[in-house]
Simulated assay, not measured.
Amino acid sequence: MLQILSGFGFLTGATYPLRVLAVLRRAPRLWSYLAIPILVNVVVGIALYAGLLLPSLRATEELEISLSNRLDSLLVNLPAWLGFLRFLSSGVDFLLDFLLIVLLFLFTGFLLVQFGTLLGAPWYGQLSEKMEELRTGKVEIVEVGIFRDIGRAILFELKKLGLGMAIGIPLLVLNLLPGLGTLMATIGGVTLTATIICLDFLDGPSERRRLSFRKKLSIVLTSLPASAGFSLVCMGLITIPLLNLITIPLCVAGGTLFWCDRVYPKLPKAGSQGKLNKTSGVPNP
């Protein structure tokens, strides 16, 4: 019954960013690991909002005016009995304005996640480690060396880019079909964005165990629908301007909690060769 009420885990997954607040209340020392990531996000956010968001808002406004003028020119010569179409055009204008602004904020928030987590990776890594240690009593790390570690980080970003292109380009083509094609492309675009965001926020504990990209993607898919609830809430949180400077670190911590609760128990027993317990510095039993 609880499974049904929680949407088979969807609603439970959606609560993880908020669960972090309860953990921080019980362990206030963790706030110190949020300070620098928030500062990094402020710097990156200022750059993105000043260099991208404000010019894009002006361009969006010009596009809206142009589309509105074209629509008005089509409606001006309509007979009186079709006058109701003018009211419909006002509704279309409002809906278009809303969708364009939401998509713009979502895109800006998505970029903030990508650049913010990349630049703040060392501090996000520490935050994730502390959350895992608090949740499971230990932190498991497979040591591979700094150069291989950097190579894995670069490869992870390239594979995310490849995934985005492999799915995003067909979606753009599908978007050329009016009506159903646009709807399917929109749903596909949201799903793709949510998947990449989920990969980012679950990456801390996954990368410490040096899982492959395919395994990381498999974790996202096999954790459905809980991972969908988690990623969609995170999408909403990173879309809100200024607030996302704070919510991104919360989503990183929430991703670690999600991983510890819903992924870790399903993994093979700890203690595989090369895996270390960081808290004790000895191989796991």
Rank of each mutant, 00 (worst) to 15 (best):
D93I: 04
G125V: 00
R148H: 10
L67M: 14
L103W: 11
L174Y: 05
N175I: 04
G125E: 15
G83D: 15
L67K: 13
V42C: 14
I150S: 03
N175Q: 05
A47N: 08
Q114H: 09
E133T: 08
I167A: 06
E140W: 07
Y49V: 05
G109Y: 05
G164D: 01
S56Q: 13
R135I: 00
F110K: 01
A50C: 07
F87H: 12
L75N: 02
A47F: 14
L95N: 01
G164F: 06
G145E: 02
L71D: 12
E64T: 04
G145D: 01
V76M: 03
P55S: 05
V40D: 03
L78Y: 13
L127F: 12
T108F: 01
E143F: 10
L74F: 11
Y124H: 13
Y124I: 05
W123R: 11
D72R: 14
R86Q: 09
T117Q: 14
L96T: 13
F84I: 15
S68W: 15
R152G: 07
L74I: 13
L180G: 06
T108P: 00
L127D: 00
V44G: 11
Q126W: 07
L67Y: 03
R135V: 00
L82K: 13
F98Q: 12
A59L: 09
L78S: 04
G51W: 12
L104C: 07
D149E: 09
R58W: 01
L96A: 10
L39S: 15
D97V: 00
L106F: 08
L88R: 04
V76Q: 06
S68H: 11
T60E: 00
L103Q: 08
N41T: 07
L88I: 14
R58H: 02
L52V: 15
P178R: 09
L71E: 13
L174K: 05
V113D: 10
L176G: 03
G125P: 02
V144G: 03
L158H: 01
G116R: 07
T117C: 11
G162E: 02
V42W: 03
E133F: 02
A153P: 00
L54Y: 13
L172P: 04
G109P: 01
I150W: 07
L96Q: 05
G179M: 06
G91E: 07
E129L: 04
K138M: 11
M165L: 15
T108W: 01
E157L: 12
E140C: 06
I141D: 10
V92N: 00
E129W: 05
L82E: 15
W123P: 06
E140F: 10
F98A: 10
E140N: 04
I101S: 09
I65C: 02
V173I: 14
L171M: 08
S128K: 09
P122T: 03
D93S: 12
G120I: 10
S68D: 15
F156H: 14
G116L: 08
V40F: 06
L158A: 12
D93N: 10
I154H: 01
L74P: 02
L127N: 00
E157P: 00
A59K: 07
L75S: 06
T60Q: 02
E64D: 09
L95S: 09
G45A: 11
G145M: 04
E62C: 01
L180M: 14
A121H: 14
V44S: 09
L57Y: 09
T136I: 13
L99P: 00
L106H: 06
E143D: 11
L82M: 15
